[in-house]
Design a protein around this nucleic acid. Structure first.
Lengths: 141, 141
DNA sequence: TATTGTTATACTCTATAACTATA
DNA sequence: TATAGTTATAGAGTATAACAATA
């Protein structure tokens, strides 16, 4: 294995380590707000002011549509999200955050960042470089 | 908010986006090997040649010990891991990968890296910088 | 007394199959 | 015919409480 391959290999090993470490923190992060990990994930995906069709949620979560029904039922009964009919396609229901849901989402994300991302270990230069790299790595479409 | 705070804010927003994107891919990644997301996580945590006590697994997953019992039951019945008594403390059981488990773990991690980490979008310089940054960010203890 | 792991129980998460409404 | 969403069902994931064995 050449030097470039070694670097790439090391990079994805560390990215996976980071990912699974975050995944390990998620149950405790969510529990502070009485949210399951998957509920945290849904809340992250429904951005304020950006309604999301149920089917898109199922795709992004890599799960079956029947699963999303129950998931959204529970979030809706807690007053965090709301289903609304789509004006364009009467089969579709789009998901909105309620004001309560938006506030909880913001608190959750702040808490997750504070709990598990020791950015203070990085220099300002490193933080800026990290931003550039992540922008290349995370598909924003 | 000053410039430094903006950079830090953007950095953790992107890290969270990366994390949840990976989390979204995990069910499909695991399904190719008939593994649930949590089973993938456990397999990642039990490194070959590095036995792991059950209690440590519960801590790292932020879950209750009673949960780990069932989790390990299912992995053990598939021949992927084995419980062994600890020689030092007779209350403790440590987890080992079987050869089959170690092979499956390697295949899973290779597949995850190939599926979801488009490192080819990064220059070699960026990859090397990313490694340095992640080493600072991921607690290796 | 405290800790490790198991069991019993109940609820959430999840996929499969069958269904309705709409496109 | 195909797609969006629901329902029913069954199995996996999860926490709580009570327990046995060991420290």
């Amino acid at each position: 294995m050449n030097r470039a391959d070694q670097d790439a290999c090391r990079a994805w090993q560390l990215l996976m380590k980071f990912f699974f470490a975050q995944r390990g923190h998620l149950p405790a992060s969510g529990a502070e707000f009485d949210l399951s990990p998957i509920q945290c994930h849904v809340l992250h995906l429904i951005e304020p002011g950006r309604p999301l069709p149920m089917s898109r949620l199922a795709d992004t979560l890599s799960c079956d549509a029947s699963n999303v029904t129950g998931l959204v039922d529970r979030l809706e009964s807690r007053g965090l999200v709301r289903r609304r009919p789509s004006p364009r396609d009467r089969r579709v229901k789009v998901l909105h955050l309620t004001p309560t849901g938006a506030r909880l989402r913001a608190r959750l994300l702040r808490q997750m960042a504070g709990r598990s991302l020791p950015l203070s270990r990085l220099s300002l230069d490193q933080q800026r470089t990290l931003v550039k790299i992540l922008e290349a790595l995370v598909d924003e479409k």
